[in-house]
């Protein structure tokens, strides 16, 4: 059975509808079925091991987390670039004209990225000890 590209995604769309329906359904069911008990002041408090909450509820956090997010974007784009290369690699190896081109271009790409990685390493971006 030959299907168009778009038709292939129809089951995915159906699955998305089912998943959203499932999530919404279970959340609503529990609202109706769950027994409601008395609301007290202590119950409404944010949990802090039994003590009253102290200070801000969303504390300040290390800048390192932000740095990791930035580096993630950088390297994830690299991964995305590598995928199409990996898929065509075999075919282009078979062709004598493009054989060295495909390897050389990716080695140079990875070399530049590795230089960036070494820079981040030198700048202690991955150092979580202190």
């Amino acid at each position: 059975m030959e299907q168009s590209q778009l038709m292939q995604y129809l089951p995915v769309l159906m699955l998305i509808v089912v998943a959203i329906g499932f999530a919404a359904g279970t959340l609503t069911i529990s609202v109706f079925l769950g027994q409601s008990a008395k609301r007290t002041k202590a119950k409404d408090m944010a949990y802090e091991c039994g003590a009253n909450p102290i200070g801000e509820n969303t504390p300040r956090f290390s800048i390192k987390f932000h740095l990791v997010a930035m580096l993630f974007i950088l390297f994830d784009i690299e991964v995305v670039f590598l995928y199409p290369w990996a898929v065509v690699y075999r075919d282009m190896l078979a062709d004598h004209a493009t054989r060295n081109l495909i390897l050389g271009s990716m080695i140079s790409f990875m070399f530049i990225l590795f230089a960036g990685y070494l820079y981040a390493l030198k700048k202690k971006a991955f150092d979580w000890k202190n």
């Binding site: 995915v12 699955l15 998305i16 089912v18 998943a19 959203i20 499932f22 999530a23 919404a24 959340l27 069911i29 529990s30 609202v31 079925l33 769950g34 027994q35 409601s36 008990a37 609301r39 119950k43 409404d44 408090m45 944010a46 509820n57």
Partner: peptide
């Protein structure tokens, strides 16, 4: 299902409901 569906007063209500749904939907997909 039958546990009390409790939403503490201090939470950000909409996100509090949205978060479990967003956690489970990709897992199912």
């Amino acid at each position: 299902m039958f546990k009390e569906d409790f939403t503490p007063a201090g939470v950000r209500k909409i996100y509090f409901f949205l978060a479990p749904a967003i956690a489970v939907i990709p897992a199912m997909l």
